[in-house]
Amino acid sequence: MLKVTDLQVTVDDQPILKGLDLQVGRGEIHAIMGPNGSGKSSFAHVLAGREGYTVTGGEVLFDGEDLLALDVEQRARKGMFLALQYPVELPGVSTMVFLRESLNAVRAERGEPALDAASFIKLLREKARLVELNPELLKRAVNTGFSGGEKKRSEILQMALLEPKLAVLDETDSGLDIDALRIVADGVNALRSPDRSMILVTHYQRLLDYIEPDFVHVLSGGRIVRTGDKSLALELERRGYAWLDEGEAAA
């Protein structure tokens, strides 16, 4: 599904990713953990095509295709989804119009016909139930006046609607209380499928209690420095990230 080879990225000429390798197979869930400033969020944004990041080397293949050659919207239409850590508010932009425009753009790419208003609303209601999002919020402008938890749920709702092949969740757990975290995690788990891969970018092990990953990677200094199963996350929780640096030094 995703093959990242020796990815090197700079921001304002500062190296951020320094040769990152990662392979995500179909249906797999990967967690990427790491200390602050390790490049986790940058990696998520580079995959989605955010401007401001310069790729200076390496390659990213998405379903066999050169991902980095695609525009932001083309990536999304081909099944890449980034749930943002801080979803932006779009005052005055109708949530319904936004979601329908988005869904129909993705459907067009898949060769599916545009949904009419009635079918769209039916589908939207169904997906809103999945993430326990108050349908009244959908009548507002996009994310405008939403609480932190509502914004995150709105991201998962969009993911449910667009049915991506690869979902990248950037610090989706940050700022959530335990109830909101459970709701978001339930939504994500409901979207697990043999055809859908996920990358969970997170600082804490907490999210992984709710969404069980197949692999855990540790990103440090712009590279994946360790890969393991979920026990690695528990070890990090116990020993902190500093332990890895010692390991690095010893190696």
Partner: peptide, 26 residues
């Protein structure tokens, strides 16, 4: 904001028009 809309599959030109309309709609 433009990035957010594009990251949901919406073409850049359409995204900008949506944001302008949103601005006016207020």
């Amino acid at each position: 904001q433009v990035f957010y809309l594009r990251s949901r599959g919406i073409a850049a030109g359409v995204a900008r028009r949506m944001l302008c309309l949103g601005f006016a709609t207020e």
